[in-house]
């Protein structure tokens, strides 16, 4: 299993749009992707599940990735979070 953490930089938190982008991106991997925030845990490939985390600006997300392509998935997801999750538009 691979693990990394990402602290949400978007002032709007993890609202629908970044959650949607993340879920779409995560779906391309075989590995099981869990996203944890505090005591809550979500399936990284499901929009409603990610939104249910209610993650706001500054929340630390822990990604736990396990499966045959976990190395690629972890590296790609970490890069994705850093580059694509900063946005300023809320939706």
């Amino acid at each position: 299993m691979k693990e990394f953490t990402y602290k949400i930089e978007d002032p709007n938190g993890m609202h629908a749009r970044p959650a949607g982008m993340l879920a779409t991106f995560a779906k391309q991997f075989h590995a099981d992707i869990r996203v944890n925030a505090g005591e809550k845990s979500a399936d990284g490939k499901r929009l409603l599940s990610l939104m249910s985390l209610g993650a706001v600006h500054g929340t630390e997300l822990t990604f736990c990735i396990s499966g045959d392509d976990e190395d690629t998935a972890a590296a790609a997801l970490e890069a994705f979070c850093k580059e694509k999750m900063k946005g300023n538009t809320k939706m």
């Binding site: 749009r17 949607g20 879920a23 490939k45 499901r46 409603l48 599940s49 939706m91």
Partner: peptide, 19 residues
């Protein structure tokens, strides 16, 4: 594009596995 993404999200909600 920005505002149109609302409907992209609607599409994802409709096809969400949990739903």
């Amino acid at each position: 594009e920005d505002a149109a993404q609302i409907f992209e999200i609607h599409g994802m909600l409709l096809e969400d596995e949990d739903f």
